[in-house]
Design a protein around this nucleic acid. Structure first.
Lengths: 201, 201
DNA sequence: GAAGGCATGTAAATCGTTACATGATTTA
DNA sequence: TAAATCATGTAACGATTTACATGCCTTC
């Protein structure tokens, strides 16, 4: 079982990938894991301090000119902790958080037009995120051939594929709602008629 | 701009869908929004209290036998707040949290075999979640025909479709990694060769 | 009569964001 | 010379989990 805090996980990983300062950890997160894992300075710097006190990272002063600058790297203990977390098969959980889905969930509370507006807004949001990802993707492709940086690119591709899929799913629902037909088709014979809903009945 | 706390959003929505007690709000969350939006008793009860003090919900004592029981419902002010949040087009953001992706992101730190093990584990996890969803789906289908409960079912279908898609995506990566070929195919001519990776270069 | 579900809550700890403060260096 | 970027940090607040405490009611 990994005892690393969520923030420690990204930090150790980023340090292992060659990122040095707290500032750079934040930048790396913002340009790569941001869409599925974030962290703020308010977490990063205190966590670096804790990791150091716990002996998982070491700090070295490497000022740039007169700007003080602390470069961190993994200790053997830190390497072990990172590896342990990454190969831990016990504590794999599935949990995401998505406010757009929560809005859709409560669609029955809204008018048809309001739901349609939300569906369109959601798709626009996806398009914006896609545009950003594609920009990053072009720049990231260079680093792809370089050994030791294949997976960040792979995950970026996951992001692009996932958002494309999700956008299309929302588009399909929009189409159905516009057409006035059923929102989803039921595969088996059962067309309902019972009394209990998903939530309250 | 909606000033509701994240927990207030689910609570108001659930109350609107006919859920009455704090206990039932929790149960409704656990059996429906759980995979993209959770809340614990430690949030729900204090939040219900705050919402009441703010005049968004009203409470009524409806004991069941000798078991004290408080049933909540929306006030007009609460209705307005819920509607405002659901139709707010300003504050739509895209942010999810997924530890599986973070593990994949750091795949370069692991051996091929270790990554393969993670990919397989992830797919097994997806299968387990899918199995649970399909169970719920069968029960939920009944409520589908019932007017006023269409969207919870729709979102459940999103969950099933998304996890199916995701499982297949992971399976494809596993296949490629086993085959020893490239993890992703590059669409344009660019095959890389530059110096900068996504993270540190 | 034990187990499990119904029902409500609190305390402590942890996790995370936002806003602020500071100051050097680099680039337009 | 103004703006952006590099760099480090803290304080206040807000969000969330976990563990505990209590007691009735229903089912096996």
């Amino acid at each position: 079982m990994s005892s690393l805090t969520p923030t420690a996980r990204v930090i150790l990983g980023m340090l292992k990938l060659g990122v040095g300062t707290g500032y750079d950890v934040k930048k790396a997160i913002d340009t790569s894991t941001r869409f599925f894992w974030t962290a703020s300075y308010g977490q990063i710097y205190p966590e670096l301090k804790r990791l150091r006190e716990a002996g998982l990272v070491r700090a070295k002063d490497e000022p740039r000119g007169r700007v003080k600058r602390t470069v961190y790297s993994l200790t053997p203990k830190g390497e072990r902790a990172l590896h342990e977390w990454l190969t831990d098969s016990e504590n794999v959980i599935f949990e995401i958080r998505d406010e757009g889905l929560l809005r859709l969930f409560f669609g029955d509370v809204l008018s048809r037009e309001e739901v349609l507006a939300n569906l369109r807004m959601q798709q626009q949001l996806f398009e914006m995120v896609l545009a950003r990802f594609r920009e990053i993707e072009v720049r990231a492709r260079d680093g792809f051939a370089e050994e030791g940086q294949r997976y960040p690119y792979l995950v970026l591709r996951y992001g692009i594929d996932f958002i494309t899929w999700s956008r299309d799913w929302f588009a399909e629902v929009e189409r159905r709602l516009e057409a006035g037909g059923p929102l989803v088709e039921l595969e088996d014979g059962e067309t309902g008629g019972g009394k209990r809903g998903l939530v309250a009945g």
